[in-house]
Nucleic acid binder design. Structure first.
Lengths: 410, 410
DNA sequence: CATCTTATGTATAATTTTATTCATAAGATT
DNA sequence: AATCTTATGAATAAAATTATACATAAGATG
């Protein structure tokens, strides 16, 4: 009996998920590597790969690898097989995009936002914008993979909820996943923006550096870690909170968190802006600080240099504790370039033991503004194409591809 | 044709490694769980499990789990299936043991050692002691799994070598694995003692706490981390080096490492001994300090309390950065109990944000002196029974079990 | 004790996967 | 152009694995 119920010639995708996962995660990019990595026989791999090719999940690229004989054809996930919806919630706007599996932007939108907007109405507006983006994207990229959100606040990733104090009012413990799931029926991911920027740096710029620290120096200060090739979140998703490590002194300034002497209160964008204001400049946030630096104001440059040394102190602690092989400095103040970086380097090389700094690089991020959005896309892809989850993805795909008339009739 | 060449009735262990791995790693402890976890059919699981039972790798325990019907039989790796050799190289002695797969000690030995003994002669003496232990152990525990060493110095685990400055003279970059492999032809693991103590705490005392920090406060200060259930080593295996994080002040004391103001120089056993000596007491190391504390000398207690607060500062940094849900304090000075712990707790709860300390426990280790040796055993078991390595283990087992007369004749 | 539930073993046929072999493809080398 | 190498596809039989069905085991429950 024909399983599809019709003579539709749909290729059998049984157990092809493992093959797709290997290609998507980069574990294999040719038939030979698939054989090696999967441990399956050539016949089986060929059959499953053909099914994936026929369905449009995988494509043969034009690239080939030299082999001594006939060149190896390079395989890749077909970026146009599907799309995902991502959004980066900032403090003044929400950027939204439909992305293909590259990930690259298919279509995007921006809606206004304020930190006092509650989650209910915000998620409804995000949902509306998403629905419009999905309508366009689905025409060219048939399969809707899922949704991924970036939030400027601590997030318990497993539960997908904002935890603890946040700049976003009323979001604490709100069931973000539940709300979006009810409307879109796809996997929903929610993560902190710094962790997503970290994932972006790792996947896009330093895919071979399996132990790195990303430090965002903007209006606030935060960090994310890649440990053994995976984002490291800690027990509550609060790992990397270096902004509120304290250095006590007689003149320890008051921090936003209510304590004295935090790194943020000494070196974050808002702290430098505060100090510049006290000196008669007009500065409210990190961007104003950088504007003054770019205008070569000596006071601004001096304060940025000092901030670099302060941040260098806390980065040196982090380097001693987690021993990364790369530190990437990003965020708005990173646009201050060497003015910021030299102080960081100075302190790290001075304070850490040679063993930890021997093979350590400290570099500026080359990221664009929306790296968190791409990070959100990478996170979604990484999780959905992981060996443990791929089967569920394939099952949903099969269900949607062949909506059985019998089932819907019952 | 009979594969064994004889009518020996040896059960076919083909592909049984996966089943053994599931049982050994704790991923499954009953037939039902094996079915679920392996995804194989009942027939296949039964067949492979029977082979493992027949070979003595696995046994049925007396324990059963209630199920509503016939109780589920609990399976476990047979602790007597094999043995491993472990050694903990300390600064004055080397403790060696043959351990079963529990791991529990079968037989042990101690040989003298000094930090100026080079690796060549030391490894030869360790090899001799190991050979003697193996002779006994092999009688009751047939299969020789491997060797695992604990060293009081930074180790690059992947390469199995001492890296950077070390209390052990002449060991830097020495090929420890190569030397032991040449003599024993089994897997050899080499790891830092603090990481092994961390593994011990995790596996034996807190198996459900997947994000923990272990701090060893002895003559020196070091730490190890469990992140997501795995030991976290960093890029060079130097992660957790909290002993040389600096707190500068006017009276910053000189550290062994040549810098001023390190945590070690303020709060380690040798630093407290130094301060006690300056006050006329006779104290050289952490043990002497604890002796004075146990004699209720107010100066010793005062210095230990102060050390607790200093260590608390650096632990609070680590807690902010890695967000564990548990901190275990061990090492010789931990025998000072609340005198040490109260200062640590005070500083951590004072300096970390509530999000990080909300679900954080800080406890004393209940470990015995030789926890590093058990940690070494756990490390070996964990790696050799991991899904990725189990097949190699099974292959060696099969090779040794059935030494083919044809092969040796050729 | 009879009955219920779930655990566990085994025989059979159906299905999936593999090993093996042969054939063709496609660039590199001579 | 002839030849070499490795990639890739396909056909066949052999082997492994599964689904299914049936049978027994063993404690809990009433």
């Amino acid at each position: 009996m024909d399983k599809t119920g019709e003579g539709h010639e749909l290729p059998a995708l049984d157990n092809a998920g493992g093959i797709l996962s290997l290609i998507a995660t980069g574990a294999a990019s040719s038939r030979a590597e698939l054989l090696q990595a999967s441990g399956l026989s050539r016949v089986t791999v060929t059959q499953r790969l053909n099914a994936l090719l026929a369905c449009g999940w995988v494509r043969e690229t034009e690239k080939t690898l030299p082999s001594g004989g006939r060149p190896t054809r390079v395989l890749a996930v077909n970026a146009m097989a599907g799309f995902m919806l991502v959004a980066n919630i900032g403090e003044t706007h929400i950027h939204l995009a439909a992305m293909d599996l590259t990930p690259a932007v298919i279509d995007q939108a921006t809606i206004p936002f304020g930190v006092s907007d509650g989650p209910e109405s915000t998620l409804e507006r995000i949902g509306d914008a998403f629905a419009a983006l999905a309508l366009t994207a689905q025409k060219t990229h048939p399969f809707f993979l899922g949704i991924s959100l970036s939030l400027p606040t601590p997030v318990d990733f497993k539960r997908g909820r904002v935890v603890g104090p946040s700049v976003l009012h009323g979001w604490d413990e709100f069931d973000i996943i539940g709300r979006l799931l009810a409307r879109f029926k796809v996997n929903v991911y929610v993560e902190n923006d710094v962790n997503l920027m970290t994932i972006y740096e790792y996947r896009r710029n330093f895919p071979d550096v399996d132990d790195m620290l990303f430090v965002k120096v903007g209006t606030g200060i935060g960090s994310g870690m890649i440990a053994g090739g995976r984002i490291f979140r800690g027990a509550q998703g609060a790992a990397g909170d270096i902004g509120h490590i304290q250095f006590l002194s007689d003149d320890a300034p008051l921090c936003r968190c209510g304590k004295f002497g935090c790194v943020e209160a000494r070196a974050a964008g808002w702290a430098i802006a505060r100090d510049l204001s006290a000196r008669g400049f007009k500065a409210e946030n990190a961007r104003d600080v950088i504007d003054l630096v770019e205008q070569q104001k000596p006071e601004a440059i001096m304060l940025l240099r000092a901030a670099g040394r302060t941040i260098g102190e806390v980065i040196s602690d982090a380097v001693s504790i987690i021993n990364p092989s790369l530190v990437v400095v990003g965020g708005t103040l990173a646009r201050g370039g060497e003015f910021l970086l030299s102080g960081i380097r100075e302190l790290v090389y001075q304070r850490c033991l040679p063993l930890a700094t021997r093979d350590l690089s400290i570099v500026l991020s080359a990221s664009r503004e929306d790296s968190a959005m791409f990070g959100a896309a990478y996170l979604l892809l990484e999780d959905m194409f992981s060996p443990t989850k791929i089967d569920r993805l394939m099952q949903r795909f099969l269900r949607e591809r062949a909506p059985s008339p019998y089932l819907s009739a019952v």
